[in-house]
Amino acid sequence: MFSSPFVARRISAAGALVLAALFVSAAPALAHVEVQTETPQALVQNVSLTFEAEAESDSAGITEMRVVLPDGIAPTDVVLLGQPKGWKLTADTDGFTVGGPPVAVGTNAVFTVKVRQLPDTDELAFKTIETYSDGKISRWIEIPKGDARPQQPAPVLELKAAAPGASPIATSPSASDAPAPSPTSASPAVPAPEAAAKDDEGEGRTGLLVAAVAIAVLAAAGGVWWLLKRRSGTSQS
Rank of each mutant, 00 (worst) to 15 (best):
V35W: 06
T234W: 15
K88A: 11
H32D: 12
A91I: 03
Q152A: 12
R149L: 13
P183S: 06
L218T: 10
A161G: 07
K88V: 11
G222T: 14
S57D: 02
Q236C: 14
S59I: 05
T93S: 06
R139E: 10
P173D: 02
W225C: 15
T184W: 08
A212I: 04
L227E: 15
A216Y: 08
G61Q: 01
G202H: 12
D120Q: 04
D92W: 10
A26K: 13
G165L: 00
A197D: 04
G223D: 14
V103S: 00
T121I: 05
P183K: 06
H32C: 06
R10H: 10
A220T: 12
I137R: 06
D177H: 10
E56K: 10
I143N: 11
G72D: 00
D71R: 05
L30Y: 12
D71G: 04
G106K: 04
E158K: 14
M65C: 07
P40D: 03
Q36R: 12
A186D: 09
F96L: 06
A74R: 08
S172G: 07
G72Q: 02
R230S: 15
K127M: 11
W87R: 07
A186Q: 13
D92I: 09
W87T: 08
F6Q: 13
Y132A: 02
D120A: 02
A178T: 15
G61L: 01
S3K: 09
I143A: 10
V79P: 02
P144Q: 13
V156C: 01
K198N: 01
D120L: 00
H32P: 12
A178V: 13
T90L: 11
S48R: 09
V213D: 04
A212P: 04
T39D: 06
V115P: 00
R230D: 14
A220Y: 11
A211F: 07
S167Q: 04
K229V: 15
A13S: 11
S12M: 11
K114N: 07
E142P: 11
T37G: 00
A163Q: 01
D92R: 11
P5T: 08
S187P: 06
A53C: 03
T184V: 10
A55W: 01
S133Y: 01
D120S: 03
A16D: 14
T184F: 10
L227P: 15
F126N: 08
P70G: 00
P150L: 06
I62C: 00
L30A: 12
P179K: 09
R116L: 02
Q117C: 01
P75S: 00
K114L: 07
V67W: 07
A91T: 05
Q45V: 03
P179A: 09
A74I: 03
Q83G: 13
A162D: 04
